[in-house]
Amino acid sequence: MEQQNININVAKREKDNKDLRVKVEARDLDLWYSDNHALRNINMDIYEKKITSFIGASGCGKSTFLRCLNRMNDLISDVTIKGKISVDGHNIYAPGVDEVAVRKKIGMVFQQPNPFPKSIYENVAYAPLMHDIVKKGSDCDELVENSLKGAGLWEEVKDKLKEPGTALSGGQQQRLCIARTIAVKPDIILMDEPTSALDPISTQTIESLMLSLKEQFTIIVVTHNMQQATRVADYTAFFHLGEIIEYNETEQIFINPQVSKTEQYITGQFG
């Protein structure tokens, strides 16, 4: 039974891509919110420098699982987590691992753009300075510039770095949040419905940004929008009631789903 589960959960590797490497491994992961069994026996391999998307109806556990990957669930009391998640073979839930250090390695972008009530410059420079990645001065300026360029925001804000980040438009704010995330130089970027609060044009910008970011980062994105998954994701996992029903190359999931539940969802019969 369990063996079978793993077979379903772990996506088939692309046949023509020999150098595909596993970045994140989830094994036998279970999660409870007090008595509510929110994630059931999750087993999953996520590949390096690819975009993996999680889809499913609301309440299916996709965001919860995403938050497990950088231990954001630690903030909620009453959460019990069993099982293992490793990054490059290092268990992030191992005793002695500081969740703060985990989050430095695994950044996150949220549904609502949430810039800090500080200047654009400080928004980006804050974390690298704290983590001692750079010292104050020209190194830091360079990092801020590169990060903003990486997020495709530099041209728009280079003359107003001192202005508050909250004064930018929604789409710009979200790119600022991406810039401050990549400034920390994480390995993995988690995105929790990053475009659901944005207009279509900003969404398009963010999506093309995601495609360019996968050159350097492993990206995991939760989305409500199935079209978005087909546009950006290399792999897609379909969650239902706390379980992974199907996980495969995005094309396979949408063209040739193996499980009838998946088909029902992508054809809009529920969700």
């Binding site: 073979g89 191992a94 500081d98 703060v100 250090a101």
Partner: peptide, 18 residues
């Protein structure tokens, strides 16, 4: 497979947490 080393390491984290 599992290794317990300084993979998740940030300089000065101890001091910051203190």
């Amino acid at each position: 497979m599992e290794k317990n080393d300084d993979y998740f390491y940030i300089p000065q984290l101890k001091k910051r947490n203190r």
